[in-house]
Protein backbone atom coordinates (compact mmCIF):
# COMPACT_ATOMS: atom_id res chain seq x y z
CA UNK A 1 0.00 0.00 0.00
CA UNK A 2 2.50 2.68 -1.05
CA UNK A 3 0.93 5.42 -3.09
CA UNK A 4 -2.63 6.41 -2.42
CA UNK A 5 -4.86 8.28 -4.81
CA UNK A 6 -3.81 11.90 -4.89
CA UNK A 7 -5.68 13.98 -2.37
CA UNK A 8 -7.26 16.43 -4.72
CA UNK A 9 -8.94 18.31 -1.96
CA UNK A 10 -5.74 20.33 -1.81
CA UNK A 11 -6.18 21.39 -5.41
CA UNK A 12 -8.98 23.61 -6.57
CA UNK A 13 -11.43 21.26 -8.18
CA UNK A 14 -12.68 24.07 -10.33
CA UNK A 15 -9.21 24.60 -11.75
CA UNK A 16 -8.90 20.93 -12.39
CA UNK A 17 -12.17 20.79 -14.20
CA UNK A 18 -11.38 23.89 -16.21
CA UNK A 19 -8.19 22.37 -17.55
CA UNK A 20 -9.29 21.52 -21.02
CA UNK A 21 -8.25 18.55 -23.05
CA UNK A 22 -6.81 15.17 -22.43
CA UNK A 23 -4.38 16.11 -19.72
CA UNK A 24 -7.08 17.69 -17.62
CA UNK A 25 -9.41 14.78 -17.99
CA UNK A 26 -6.69 12.29 -17.26
CA UNK A 27 -5.84 14.09 -14.04
CA UNK A 28 -9.29 13.28 -12.76
CA UNK A 29 -8.95 9.59 -13.25
CA UNK A 30 -7.05 7.86 -10.51
CA UNK A 31 -4.27 5.87 -12.00
CA UNK A 32 -4.76 7.48 -15.36
CA UNK A 33 -1.25 8.80 -15.67
CA UNK A 34 0.16 5.34 -16.01
CA UNK A 35 0.44 1.93 -14.45
CA UNK A 36 2.99 3.13 -11.92
CA UNK A 37 0.42 5.35 -10.29
CA UNK A 38 -2.37 2.81 -10.31
CA UNK A 39 -3.82 2.75 -6.82
CA UNK A 40 -2.09 0.11 -4.79
CA UNK A 41 -5.19 -1.62 -3.52
CA UNK A 42 -6.40 -2.43 -6.97
CA UNK A 43 -3.00 -3.26 -8.39
CA UNK A 44 -2.54 -5.61 -5.45
CA UNK A 45 -5.66 -7.48 -6.35
CA UNK A 46 -4.28 -10.71 -7.70
CA UNK A 47 -7.29 -11.42 -9.83
CA UNK A 48 -7.11 -7.96 -11.37
CA UNK A 49 -3.47 -8.49 -12.28
CA UNK A 50 -4.14 -11.88 -13.72
CA UNK A 51 -7.71 -11.59 -14.92
CA UNK A 52 -8.85 -10.64 -18.40
CA UNK A 53 -10.29 -7.36 -17.14
CA UNK A 54 -6.81 -6.21 -16.15
CA UNK A 55 -5.94 -5.92 -19.81
CA UNK A 56 -8.39 -3.06 -20.01
CA UNK A 57 -6.15 -0.87 -17.88
CA UNK A 58 -7.04 2.57 -16.65
CA UNK A 59 -7.51 4.98 -19.53
CA UNK A 60 -4.52 7.11 -20.40
CA UNK A 61 -6.44 10.16 -21.52
CA UNK A 62 -10.05 11.05 -21.84
CA UNK A 63 -12.28 8.08 -21.30
CA UNK A 64 -12.05 5.54 -24.07
CA UNK A 65 -15.67 5.99 -24.94
CA UNK A 66 -16.11 9.75 -24.53
CA UNK A 67 -14.38 12.87 -25.79
CA UNK A 68 -12.26 15.04 -23.52
CA UNK A 69 -15.07 17.58 -23.23
CA UNK A 70 -17.62 14.88 -22.43
CA UNK A 71 -15.24 13.40 -19.89
CA UNK A 72 -14.96 16.76 -18.16
CA UNK A 73 -18.70 17.17 -17.98
CA UNK A 74 -19.19 13.66 -16.66
CA UNK A 75 -16.43 14.22 -14.09
CA UNK A 76 -18.10 17.37 -12.88
CA UNK A 77 -21.45 15.63 -12.58
CA UNK A 78 -20.11 12.55 -10.80
CA UNK A 79 -18.15 14.83 -8.49
CA UNK A 80 -21.37 16.45 -7.34
CA UNK A 81 -23.17 13.13 -6.89
CA UNK A 82 -20.70 11.89 -4.27
CA UNK A 83 -18.39 14.81 -3.52
CA UNK A 84 -15.14 14.69 -1.71
CA UNK A 85 -15.75 16.57 1.54
CA UNK A 86 -15.18 16.50 5.27
CA UNK A 87 -16.88 13.10 5.32
CA UNK A 88 -14.10 11.69 3.17
CA UNK A 89 -13.27 11.03 -0.48
CA UNK A 90 -15.93 10.94 -3.17
CA UNK A 91 -16.86 9.21 -6.38
CA UNK A 92 -13.92 10.48 -8.43
CA UNK A 93 -11.40 9.23 -5.90
CA UNK A 94 -13.23 5.93 -5.81
CA UNK A 95 -12.69 5.50 -9.54
CA UNK A 96 -16.29 5.86 -10.68
CA UNK A 97 -15.14 7.27 -14.01
CA UNK A 98 -12.87 4.35 -14.72
CA UNK A 99 -15.70 2.00 -13.79
CA UNK A 100 -18.11 3.76 -16.15
CA UNK A 101 -15.57 3.79 -18.97
CA UNK A 102 -14.92 0.07 -18.69
CA UNK A 103 -18.63 -0.61 -18.44
CA UNK A 104 -19.23 1.40 -21.60
CA UNK A 105 -16.68 -0.81 -23.33
CA UNK A 106 -18.33 -4.01 -22.13
CA UNK A 107 -21.62 -4.67 -20.41
CA UNK A 108 -23.07 -1.17 -20.91
CA UNK A 109 -21.85 -0.56 -24.46
CA UNK A 110 -25.42 0.15 -25.54
CA UNK A 111 -25.37 3.23 -23.30
CA UNK A 112 -22.54 5.17 -24.98
CA UNK A 113 -24.96 7.15 -27.11
CA UNK A 114 -27.16 7.89 -24.10
CA UNK A 115 -24.12 9.36 -22.33
CA UNK A 116 -23.19 11.46 -25.37
CA UNK A 117 -26.69 12.84 -25.84
CA UNK A 118 -27.33 13.31 -22.14
CA UNK A 119 -24.09 15.14 -21.42
CA UNK A 120 -24.66 17.50 -24.34
CA UNK A 121 -28.20 18.14 -23.13
CA UNK A 122 -26.95 18.73 -19.59
CA UNK A 123 -24.63 21.47 -20.77
CA UNK A 124 -27.27 23.05 -23.01
CA UNK A 125 -29.71 23.00 -20.13
CA UNK A 126 -27.19 24.75 -17.85
CA UNK A 127 -26.73 27.50 -20.44
CA UNK A 128 -30.47 27.79 -21.08
CA UNK A 129 -31.61 27.94 -17.48
CA UNK A 130 -28.60 29.32 -15.56
CA UNK A 131 -26.94 31.27 -18.34
CA UNK A 132 -23.55 29.54 -18.19
CA UNK A 133 -21.91 26.27 -19.18
CA UNK A 134 -22.25 23.57 -16.53
CA UNK A 135 -18.53 23.59 -15.76
CA UNK A 136 -18.63 27.29 -14.94
CA UNK A 137 -21.47 27.09 -12.44
CA UNK A 138 -20.93 27.19 -8.69
CA UNK A 139 -21.33 23.91 -6.83
CA UNK A 140 -24.70 25.09 -5.59
CA UNK A 141 -25.91 25.94 -9.08
CA UNK A 142 -24.56 22.68 -10.42
CA UNK A 143 -26.58 20.89 -7.76
CA UNK A 144 -29.68 22.89 -8.61
CA UNK A 145 -29.26 21.99 -12.29
CA UNK A 146 -28.77 18.33 -11.45
CA UNK A 147 -31.89 18.32 -9.27
CA UNK A 148 -33.89 19.65 -12.23
CA UNK A 149 -32.34 17.01 -14.46
CA UNK A 150 -33.14 14.30 -11.89
CA UNK A 151 -36.73 15.37 -11.30
CA UNK A 152 -37.51 15.86 -14.98
CA UNK A 153 -37.85 19.65 -14.89
CA UNK A 154 -35.16 19.89 -17.56
CA UNK A 155 -37.15 17.66 -19.91
CA UNK A 156 -39.53 20.35 -21.10
CA UNK A 157 -36.77 22.86 -21.73
CA UNK A 158 -36.17 21.52 -25.21
CA UNK A 159 -32.43 21.08 -24.73
CA UNK A 160 -32.16 17.66 -26.30
CA UNK A 161 -32.79 15.10 -23.60
CA UNK A 162 -34.20 11.96 -25.15
CA UNK A 163 -37.26 11.01 -23.13
CA UNK A 164 -37.07 12.27 -19.55
CA UNK A 165 -33.96 14.04 -18.30
CA UNK A 166 -34.47 11.91 -15.21
CA UNK A 167 -33.64 8.77 -17.20
CA UNK A 168 -30.22 10.20 -18.02
CA UNK A 169 -29.64 11.24 -14.42
CA UNK A 170 -30.68 7.84 -13.11
CA UNK A 171 -28.40 6.05 -15.57
CA UNK A 172 -25.37 8.07 -14.50
CA UNK A 173 -26.28 7.75 -10.84
CA UNK A 174 -26.77 4.01 -11.08
CA UNK A 175 -23.43 3.50 -12.82
CA UNK A 176 -21.71 5.82 -10.37
CA UNK A 177 -23.10 3.84 -7.44
CA UNK A 178 -21.95 0.61 -9.06
CA UNK A 179 -18.50 2.13 -9.51
CA UNK A 180 -18.27 3.38 -5.94
CA UNK A 181 -19.98 0.55 -4.04
CA UNK A 182 -19.36 -2.45 -6.32
CA UNK A 183 -16.53 -4.92 -6.33
CA UNK A 184 -13.13 -3.28 -7.03
CA UNK A 185 -12.54 -5.87 -9.76
CA UNK A 186 -14.45 -3.63 -12.15
CA UNK A 187 -12.15 -0.64 -11.71
CA UNK A 188 -14.07 1.33 -9.10
CA UNK A 189 -14.27 1.30 -5.30
CA UNK A 190 -10.56 2.12 -5.20
CA UNK A 191 -9.06 1.67 -1.73
CA UNK A 192 -12.51 0.42 -0.68
CA UNK A 193 -13.60 4.06 -0.47
CA UNK A 194 -17.22 3.15 -1.16
CA UNK A 195 -17.41 0.31 1.30
CA UNK A 196 -15.75 2.39 4.00
CA UNK A 197 -18.22 5.21 3.41
CA UNK A 198 -21.18 2.99 4.27
CA UNK A 199 -19.40 0.80 6.78
CA UNK A 200 -19.72 -2.37 4.73
CA UNK A 201 -17.13 -4.79 6.12
CA UNK A 202 -16.37 -6.34 2.75
CA UNK A 203 -16.82 -9.46 0.64
CA UNK A 204 -16.28 -12.65 2.60
CA UNK A 205 -16.79 -16.30 1.87
CA UNK A 206 -17.84 -17.37 5.36
CA UNK A 207 -19.26 -15.35 8.22
CA UNK A 208 -19.24 -17.26 11.49
CA UNK A 209 -21.59 -16.65 14.39
CA UNK A 210 -18.67 -14.93 16.11
CA UNK A 211 -18.19 -12.66 13.05
CA UNK A 212 -21.88 -11.82 13.15
CA UNK A 213 -21.69 -10.90 16.84
CA UNK A 214 -18.69 -8.69 16.13
CA UNK A 215 -20.58 -7.04 13.28
CA UNK A 216 -23.50 -6.34 15.59
CA UNK A 217 -21.11 -4.87 18.14
CA UNK A 218 -19.51 -2.67 15.48
CA UNK A 219 -16.20 -4.48 15.95
CA UNK A 220 -15.83 -6.56 12.81
CA UNK A 221 -12.72 -5.38 10.96
CA UNK A 222 -13.25 -4.82 7.24
CA UNK A 223 -12.07 -7.67 5.00
CA UNK A 224 -10.72 -5.29 2.32
CA UNK A 225 -10.78 -7.90 -0.41
CA UNK A 226 -12.38 -8.21 -3.79
CA UNK A 227 -14.48 -11.31 -4.35
CA UNK A 228 -11.92 -12.30 -6.94
CA UNK A 229 -9.14 -12.19 -4.37
CA UNK A 230 -10.50 -15.46 -3.06
CA UNK A 231 -9.00 -17.23 -6.03
CA UNK A 232 -11.84 -19.60 -6.68
CA UNK A 233 -13.72 -17.52 -9.22
CA UNK A 234 -13.66 -16.85 -12.91
CA UNK A 235 -15.22 -13.70 -14.29
CA UNK A 236 -15.37 -14.85 -17.88
CA UNK A 237 -16.87 -18.25 -18.33
CA UNK A 238 -15.17 -20.47 -20.88
CA UNK A 239 -17.00 -22.44 -23.52
CA UNK A 240 -16.95 -25.73 -21.71
CA UNK A 241 -19.83 -27.98 -20.96
Amino acid sequence: MSDKPIDRRAISRRDLLKTAGAAGAAALIPGAAGAKEAPASVADTAAVRAGPAAAAAAPAGPLMNLTAAETELLSAMVDRLIPSDDMGPGALEAGALRYIDRALSEAESDSVEAYRIGLAALDRYARYSRGAPFLELSDEDKDSVLIDVQLGGATGAGVGFVGSSGAFFNMVKSHTWQGVFGDPMYGGNIDFIGWDLIGYPGARMRVSEQDQRELEAGQLPPARRSAYDYGQFQLIRGEED
Partner: peptide
Protein backbone atom coordinates in the same frame (compact mmCIF):
# COMPACT_ATOMS: atom_id res chain seq x y z
CA UNK B 1 -38.95 30.37 -10.17
CA UNK B 2 -39.12 27.52 -12.65
CA UNK B 3 -36.65 25.08 -14.20
CA UNK B 4 -36.58 27.43 -17.19
CA UNK B 5 -34.50 29.65 -14.92
CA UNK B 6 -32.64 29.33 -11.64
CA UNK B 7 -35.54 27.51 -10.01
CA UNK B 8 -35.22 29.38 -6.75
Amino acid sequence: YSPDGRNV
